[in-house]
Amino acid sequence: MKETRQGMTIIVKTITRLTVGLIFLYGIYIVLHGHLTPGGGFAGGVIMALAFIHLMIAFGKETALKKLSQAKAAFLENLGALMFLSVAALGFSGGYFFYNFIKKGMPFHLLSAGIIPLCNIAICLKVGAGLFSIFVTLLILNNTGRKK
């Protein structure tokens, strides 16, 4: 993260630099433990999107978009939706749409609950990338409005 003239003061930038990774990591934790602790794909996805939005507010639009461009976000969003649909459709291997076809494992272990963690990851991609795209879109629309 190079120093740029855009964005907020040095205090905010320094704090952001320290926290943004932790926020992202926390999002990943929430997603992966979705089937064990409160939270899940949606909450974790929102937190991960917030890490990027945080970056955008502190460092300006360009820095954040360099990390995750709009095209990439759109790709991830579609990937999430397709992944969710494929996991659900793979349930047909067990006889039913949305059937939990993976071994359930021991309760309260990280690798348990069958397809639920996979669904959480798919939801996190969809929600996170979607929220980020919405934020970027609003920002761009806002700027064009001001120029007039």
Binding site: G91, G95, Y96, F98, Y99, N100
Partner: peptide, 8 residues
């Protein structure tokens, strides 16, 4: 009525 049980 054709009933489908989602997820079994």
């Amino acid at each position: 009525v054709l009933v489908y049980k989602v997820g079994g």
